[in-house]
């Protein structure tokens, strides 16, 4: 697909955000790893849903992604609210 004008903005935002999380949890690699795990599960579910068509209900909804990340980022309000900016239907 052709690149859209604001795609680099979203990409840069994502890079900065991942970098921020990495730095914040430098001493707690398990938290960072769990965050990556949540994202990958979500992405996998989205792909399954796309391939299966409209009959498929993803096992991990946006709401559940947000809940899991909120649990992970407890006491890190800024990271959580920024995460909400990425999530569809947040």
């Amino acid at each position: 697909p052709p690149l859209q004008n604001n795609q680099p903005v979203e990409f840069n935002h994502a890079i900065n955000y991942v970098n921020k999380i990495k730095n914040r949890f430098q001493g707690q690699p398990d938290i960072y790893k769990a965050f990556l795990e949540i994202l990958h599960t979500y992405q996998k579910e989205q792909r399954n849903a796309k391939e299966a068509g409209s009959n498929y209900t993803p096992a991990l909804t946006e709401q559940e992604v947000y809940t899991q990340v909120a649990r992970l980022f407890k006491n890190q309000e800024d990271l959580l609210s920024e995460f909400g900016q990425f999530l569809p239907d947040a």
Binding site: Q7, E10, L39, L87
Partner: peptide, 27 residues
Amino acid sequence: SYDFTPLDSSAVYVLSSMARRRRASQS
């Protein structure tokens, strides 16, 4: 400068595709 592993890069990819989907659903 960023020291990104392939895992980090895939997290960036997922996040930016989330943001794109969000934008698509809002427009």
